[in-house]
Amino acid sequence: AEKTGIVNVSSSLNAREGASTSSKVIGSLSGNTKVTIVGEEGAFYKIEYKGSHGYVAKEYIKDIKDE
């Protein structure tokens, strides 16, 4: 099942092309942005936001229960 997560940073969080800190940054998400978690790979979540996919470090995403 898809989960919703909240970007848990004070400034912004980089979204990357792949599940690695050396992957190209494809965008950034500001704190408290809601994202859909579609998968996980190592220390990263694969997320969907406004129709695009990217990878973000798990430690900066807070899971919330689907309402």
Rank of each mutant, 00 (worst) to 15 (best):
G51H: 05
A15R: 03
G51C: 07
G51N: 08
A15F: 15
Y60S: 08
G27S: 03
E41I: 08
E67Q: 11
Y45Q: 05
F44R: 00
E41M: 07
I61V: 08
K34Q: 09
I64K: 03
A1V: 13
I26K: 03
S30N: 11
V56D: 01
E17C: 13
E2N: 15
V56R: 00
E59H: 08
K46Q: 07
K65S: 13
V7G: 04
S20T: 10
K50A: 11
N32D: 09
G31T: 11
I64D: 06
S20G: 06
G54D: 01
E40G: 02
E2Y: 15
H53E: 07
F44S: 01
V35T: 00
Y55W: 12
S22I: 09
Y55T: 00
K65Q: 12
E59I: 12
I47V: 06
G27C: 12
K58R: 06
V9L: 07
G18D: 09
E40M: 07
K65A: 10
H53K: 04
S20E: 06
Y49D: 01
E2S: 15
S20M: 06
A15H: 03
E40T: 06
T36H: 10
E67P: 12
T4E: 07
K34I: 14
A43N: 13
S11D: 12
G5S: 04
G51F: 05
L13D: 03
T36K: 14
T21Q: 11
E17T: 06
K50P: 02
K24G: 06
R16H: 15
I26W: 01
S30G: 09
S28N: 09
K65Y: 10
E40L: 05
F44G: 00
V9T: 11
G54M: 14
N8R: 12
K62W: 08
Y49F: 13
D66N: 11
G42W: 01
Y55E: 00
A1D: 08
I26R: 01
G27V: 08
S20L: 06
K50H: 10
V9N: 07
K46C: 10
V38Y: 05
G18K: 13
G31A: 15
I37Y: 00
I64Y: 07
E48L: 15
G39P: 00
I6R: 08
K34H: 08
T36C: 11
N8M: 12
S20Q: 05
E17Y: 07
Y45E: 05
G54T: 03
K24D: 05
R16V: 06
T21G: 09
S28M: 12
V56T: 00
I6D: 02
D66H: 12
I64L: 09
G5F: 05
T33A: 08
K62F: 09
N14W: 12
S20R: 05
T21N: 14
S10M: 12
S30C: 14
I26Q: 01
G54I: 09
R16L: 15
A19V: 07
N32Q: 10
Y55M: 01
G39S: 06
T4R: 09
H53T: 10
N32T: 06
V9W: 05
G51A: 05
K46S: 02
S20P: 04
G54R: 03
V25Y: 04
E40V: 07
K34M: 11
D66W: 15
G51V: 01
Y45T: 05
T36V: 14
V25M: 05
K46D: 05
G27K: 03
I61Y: 01
K65F: 13
S12M: 11
K3F: 09
Y60T: 04
S11Q: 10
L13K: 02
K65M: 11
K24I: 07
G51T: 05
V25Q: 04
K65P: 09
Y60H: 10
A43Y: 08
G54W: 12
S52Q: 12
S23T: 06
A43K: 10
Y60E: 06
G27W: 13
Y55A: 01
G27Y: 13
G5Y: 05
N32V: 05
S10W: 05
S30Q: 14
I47W: 00
A15I: 15
Y45M: 03
V56K: 00
T36G: 03
E41K: 07
V38P: 00
Y49G: 00
Y49A: 00
G5K: 04
A1Q: 13
T36I: 13
S12Q: 10
K34V: 13
G31Y: 12
S20W: 06
I26C: 10
G39W: 03
A43G: 12
G5D: 02
T4L: 08
N14E: 15
S52T: 13
Y55C: 04
E17K: 07
V7W: 01
S30A: 14
L29I: 12
K62N: 09
Y55H: 00
V38M: 06
E17G: 05
T4G: 04
S52R: 13
T33C: 11
S23M: 05
N14Y: 12
I47N: 02
H53A: 06
S28A: 10
V38Q: 03
N32I: 06
I61F: 04
D63I: 15
D63A: 10
K65R: 13
F44C: 07
R16M: 15
F44D: 05
L13T: 10
I26D: 01
E48Q: 11
V35L: 03
I61A: 01
E40F: 05
K24P: 11
Y45N: 04
K24R: 13
S52D: 07
S12L: 10
I37G: 00
D66P: 12
N14F: 13
T36Q: 08
E59K: 11
G39N: 02
Y49T: 01
H53P: 05
G18E: 12
K34S: 06
K3Q: 07
G42V: 01
S10K: 13
K3M: 10
S52G: 15
V25D: 02
V9K: 08
Y49N: 00
